[in-house]
Design a protein around this nucleic acid. Structure first.
Length: 420
DNA sequence: TCTGGGGTCCTAGGACCC
DNA sequence: TCTGGGGTCCTAGGACCC
């Protein structure tokens, strides 16, 4: 049995944790630079605000309805996510954290431990709420895709109250018949449209298709989805949590930038993030993709990228920063209103298989990187970094509606007034 | 006045080579 | 006169997810 546990509108719910005054109000959270709406709490959902629609287009609607608007407070969300995940992890000995607010649980050998999945799901929900004040939905199913479907039912369909279980033919049918294809994990807008033409509208109808036919018509991914909907596990536990094959860090700027130093500083910061993620996964990159662009909404769209080949795979931030410096002139062009940039690590290999090269000019320094990571873990990120990442930080994001970092910054810790 | 997220995986198609 | 393959590498962009 698999379970998928995730938070209801996580970012919006996280904003409510330390601010009880807004718990009964409609709340939305914006993406980086306050660009789009990315989380809509259940109360605000009634206003039909499009998720990932640009903020400026719904600003008026939000104001008219007294919706509380917040910028993304990643420091807060990351910390609350850690707390939530550790509570959920107590309910199963194999947990896989799939995203900031979702985790899969794999129950193997629990037949005699858990008598009733509904009761167990409600226990998880109650415990997470009591200990973190975050509302979660819990879905159980015999495959990861069915657990996802049950989770969807738990949160979106009437009559489920936060927990749904697919554990026999009747429950599978009841839930899949009430779900659109597009609500199935792995079926997006485009595929749903094509399926509709074939007169496949509900998840149940999709499950009735022949997997081999679906493979021919679409891809192996759709074939697997259909099989999973029928209770055949295709995404095994190792697949679900296998290492990433690409690691990116990209970001748009708070304001357009023109200066080379500012752009270069931003790129070095991205390299720092990618390096850290690579080392966390114990991977090395053979290639580094480096790009910068103007806005795609601009009349003339400018984008330049460069694929850097390392002489041997690396996860050393200094080596990667040198690569950025080396190719920077090929990417920067004076006069361009730069809007976005980033780097990606590609062609990843495992650290344990590193082949050293006596004559390589490239100098990796794993000890230095280990020390860097240890210091930043201990004293907060950004405590120790490359000088070139601090030269000019005019490119920082806009976060006009930011809440305090209640749990990660001393001066933001909530104070309780006590008049005796 | 201006404003439009970020990450990962996959594939079609172009360029180049023999 | 008419015809002309296959592999590799790289890139841009599609598709999906949260």
């Amino acid at each position: 049995m698999y379970a998928l546990v995730d938070a209801v509108a996580f970012y919006a719910s996280a904003e409510k944790v330390f601010d009880p005054a807004i718990r009964s109000k409609p709340v939305v959270v914006l993406t980086n630079n306050d660009g789009c709406v990315c989380a809509v709490c259940p109360i605000a959902r009634r206003l039909n605000i499009p998720k990932f629609g640009p903020y400026f287009k719904v600003k008026q609607l939000l104001e008219q309805n007294n919706v509380v608007v917040r910028s993304s407070n990643y420091e807060l969300y990351a910390n609350l996510s850690d707390r939530m995940m550790s509570v959920i992890g107590r309910f199963c000995d194999t947990q896989h954290i799939y995203s900031i607010d979702e985790s899969f649980l794999h129950f193997s050998g629990y037949e005699n431990v858990v008598k009733d999945w509904h009761t167990y799901g409600h226990l998880i929900r109650r415990t997470v709420w009591r200990e973190t004040k975050l509302p979660v939905g819990v879905g159980f199913g015999p495959t990861p895709t069915l657990a996802k479907a049950a989770n969807h039912a738990a949160k979106k369909l009437t009559g489920f109250d936060g927990v749904a279980v697919i554990n026999d033919e009747a429950s599978r049918r009841a839930i899949l018949q009430r779900m659109d294809c597009q609500d199935v994990w792995g079926i997006g807008k485009r595929l749903a449209k094509k399926l509709k033409i074939m007169n496949i509208n509900t998840a149940w109808q999709l499950a009735q298709q022949n997997p081999k036919t679906m493979r021919r018509a679409f891809s192996v991914v759709v074939e697997r989805t259909v099989s999973e909907l029928n209770g055949l596990v295709c995404l095994n536990w190792d697949d679900v949590r296998q290492d990433k094959r690409e690691i990116y860090s990209t970001r748009s700027f708070g304001e357009r930038i023109y200066e080379p130093t500012a752009l270069k500083t931003a790129l070095i910061n991205h390299v720092t993030i990618v390096g850290k993620k690579l080392r966390a996964q114990k991977s090395l990159a053979k290639q580094l993709y480096i790009f910068a662009s103007s806005s795609s909404h601009e009349d003339v769209f400018y984008k330049k990228s460069y694929m850097y080949q390392f002489s041997m795979p690396t996860n050393d931030t200094c080596v990667m920063a040198n690569a950025v410096s080396e190719v920077f002139e090929k990417i920067y062009q004076p006069g361009v209103r730069f809007y976005k940039c980033g780097v990606g690590a590609l062609e990843l290999t495992a650290e344990q298989f590193q082949q050293s090269d006596l004559f390589a000019p490239q100098q990796d320094n794993p000890k230095l990187m280990g020390c860097l990571d240890a210091i930043n873990t201990r004293y907060g990120k950004g405590m120790l970094g490359l000088a070139s990442s601090k030269l000019n930080d005019r490119w920082h994001m806009n976060r006009d509606f930011l809440s305090p970092q209640y749990t990660t910054r001393w001066r933001d810790i909530p104070k309780i007034k006590c008049d005796l």
